[in-house]
Simulated assay, not measured.
Amino acid sequence: MTSTAQPRRIAVLGTHSTGKTTLLKRIEMELRGHGLTVSRTGQLGKRAAAAGLPKMQHHTALSTEWIIAQGILDETNAVAQGAEVVLIDRASLDAIAYFEAAMAFRAETPHRLERERLLALAATQFPKYDLVFATLLDPDMPVDTSHDYDPAFRRLVDDRVHRLLANDVIHHQVVTSDPDSQAHAVDVAVQPCLKEELV
């Protein structure tokens, strides 16, 4: 890739503890092993909480907007710093899925105009993504017991992620907890980057 080329952007979204960060770490290691410069965004939920914003089933329109906007800023900074590949841990639509799941969990209905505004903000990023992975919840896989995850909320997020992707007809690849699915996802992510590097 030349210095004037746009970086390849690979995004992942899905409910918590479904292997998103682990998948991106594996992709990053492979790419760095081939000499590519890689930038990885992430930890938006933790950073939102540190800023005093609610998260998980307490997610609000404000925290959703903060996460989307911060994610856009992180991606922009990665591009400005000259990364050849940008790995996006939690694509912009992920925040919408958490917002909708939180509202459903609390038996609340989001204001239509507010939801449309947030969707419009999230939608600005998807045309920039070269590849989108959506992890699929496997309820039989153990989760980190140090986190107080509500299983019903976790399922709601998984449902909203895949429903949003289907409704917006966003091309994506589903990644399951199966090791073969994970390995295939890494290969799908890495090989085009290496071909571009040879051009």
Score class of each variant (00 low, 15 high):
residue 7 P to D: 02
residue 9 R to A: 10
residue 9 R to L: 11
residue 10 I to F: 11
residue 10 I to E: 08
residue 12 V to G: 07
residue 12 V to E: 13
residue 16 H to K: 02
residue 21 T to M: 07
residue 22 T to I: 06
residue 28 E to W: 02
residue 30 E to N: 09
residue 33 G to P: 05
residue 35 G to D: 01
residue 35 G to Y: 11
residue 38 V to L: 12
residue 39 S to L: 14
residue 41 T to S: 14
residue 46 K to N: 12
residue 47 R to C: 04
residue 50 A to N: 03
residue 51 A to H: 08
residue 52 G to A: 11
residue 55 K to N: 14
residue 55 K to H: 12
residue 62 L to I: 13
residue 65 E to H: 09
residue 65 E to P: 04
residue 66 W to L: 02
residue 68 I to D: 00
residue 71 G to H: 08
residue 72 I to R: 05
residue 75 E to N: 03
residue 76 T to V: 08
residue 78 A to G: 04
residue 87 L to H: 03
residue 89 D to G: 05
residue 91 A to V: 01
residue 98 Y to A: 00
residue 98 Y to K: 00
residue 100 E to A: 10
residue 101 A to I: 01
residue 106 R to Y: 08
residue 106 R to P: 04
residue 110 P to V: 03
residue 112 R to H: 13
residue 116 E to I: 00
residue 116 E to T: 06
residue 117 R to D: 00
residue 118 L to I: 01
residue 119 L to D: 06
residue 120 A to R: 12
residue 120 A to P: 01
residue 124 T to A: 13
residue 127 P to D: 06
residue 127 P to F: 14
residue 128 K to M: 09
residue 131 L to Q: 07
residue 135 T to L: 11
residue 137 L to S: 05
residue 140 D to N: 15
residue 142 P to N: 11
residue 144 D to L: 04
residue 147 H to V: 07
residue 148 D to A: 15
residue 152 A to K: 07
residue 152 A to P: 02
residue 157 V to M: 07
residue 158 D to N: 09
residue 159 D to T: 12
residue 159 D to H: 13
residue 160 R to K: 15
residue 163 R to K: 13
residue 164 L to F: 03
residue 167 N to M: 06
residue 167 N to I: 06
residue 168 D to L: 11
residue 170 I to E: 03
residue 172 H to T: 00
residue 176 T to E: 10
residue 178 D to C: 15
residue 179 P to V: 05
residue 180 D to R: 10
residue 183 A to M: 08
residue 189 A to N: 03
residue 194 L to K: 03
residue 195 K to F: 11
residue 195 K to D: 12
residue 195 K to H: 13
residue 198 L to E: 15
